[in-house]
């Protein structure tokens, strides 16, 4: 073996080793969890804010809905077909056997209980901003929903997307727990709005354009993006783009699904609006206020 070849091979192995280390899962440990008495009512609010049922509910045509989180909806993407998992409290088919720590690691670190990376089709880049107590409340709420025994098949992805380990590298770049804007303590309602929009609400998952690495572009938050199904555009909802909407207009839209031009909501926003309609009025107000506040 020539000198050159040997060094080439060694460098390649070294490079792969570095990638392997960099892509390793980084779970939270049990010591991170606070002692907490779960609040089911808060869990229910978060369930609707996070839109869990709109992906994990029972499939109904192109949509999923309801409180039986059987999964089974198929999401067709350029990377292949994702089968939305069962997250009902069923012991084997669902996530009934998960510990609180397992749940927190899924939501904040995008990790399965056995330490595999989840694909970011599951919007943990947003959910990571949720507080630990909120996550524990949400888990308690999910735990008391009806179990479903439906077994969902594995994702069917094209090369190179089956290589889950690579997601670890992607997370290194894009999984940071920082909100996009800082707030002062006085801005309570605004801070609540930001939390709901950027955390559980994951509005940016559809409304923020993505970079070539498929991460939400931090330079263009909520400024509108091509629709994921390739048909039409998801409108921008930055303060500048909502100039013609008053806070009241937004509030009414969230509550009833009719915009200031008297158009009735359509497409994938229907499910989101119906989730918003189930939130406490104060939370809808907080979201409206936050969206209307210029950066």
């Amino acid at each position: 073996m020539s000198h050159f070849l040997r060094w080439g091979l060694l460098s390649l192995l070294f490079g792969l080793g570095v990638l392997w280390v960099l892509s390793r899962p980084q779970p939270l440990t049990a010591s991170a969890l606070p002692g907490h008495e779960p609040d089911l009512a808060n869990g229910e609010v978060l369930f609707h804010a996070a839109g869990c049922g709109s992906c994990h509910g029972q499939p109904d045509g192109e949509r999923a809905r309801g409180l039986v989180l059987s999964g089974g909806l198929i999401m067709r993407t350029p990377a292949g077909r994702f089968h939305v998992p069962n997250i009902s409290p069923h012991e084997t088919a669902g996530i009934g056997a998960w510990s609180a720590l397992d749940f927190v690691n899924a939501m904040r670190r995008g990790l399965s209980p056995d330490g595999r990376h989840y694909y970011p089709a599951f919007p943990y880049t947003s959910y990571q901003q949720m507080t630990l107590t909120d996550l524990l409340d949400l888990k308690a709420y999910l735990d008391q929903l009806p179990p479903s025994a439906q077994v969902v098949p594995e994702h069917e992805l094209d090369f190179p997307w089956q290589l889950r380990r690579g997601i670890g590298l992607w997370k290194r770049l894009f999984l940071d727990a920082e909100p996009t804007r800082s707030m002062t303590k006085q801005q309570d309602l605004l801070a609540r709005g930001r939390y709901l929009v950027e955390g559980p609400g994951h509005c940016g998952a559809c409304h923020t354009p993505r970079t070539w690495l498929l991460a939400e572009d931090p330079a263009r938050p909520l400024q509108g993006a091509p629709a994921a199904d390739g048909k039409g555009r998801v409108p921008g909802i930055s303060a500048a783009q909502l100039a013609d909407w008053s806070v009241d207009d937004l509030n009414y839209y969230f509550e009833a699904g009719v915009d200031p031009e008297f158009d009735v909501v359509g497409g994938s926003m229907v499910a989101v609006q119906e989730n918003l309609a189930r939130l406490p009025a104060r939370d809808r107000q907080a979201i409206a206020l936050y969206l209307k506040t210029p950066r």
């Binding site: 045509g61 048909k231 039409g232 555009r233 409108p235 009735v264 359509g266 497409g267 229907v270 119906e274």
Partner: peptide, 16 residues
């Protein structure tokens, strides 16, 4: 409105 939404969800493309 619920029935308007159902139809706009499944059978309309939002172009703007």
């Amino acid at each position: 409105l619920g029935t308007c939404k159902a139809c706009h969800d499944g059978y309309r493309v939002d172009k703007d």
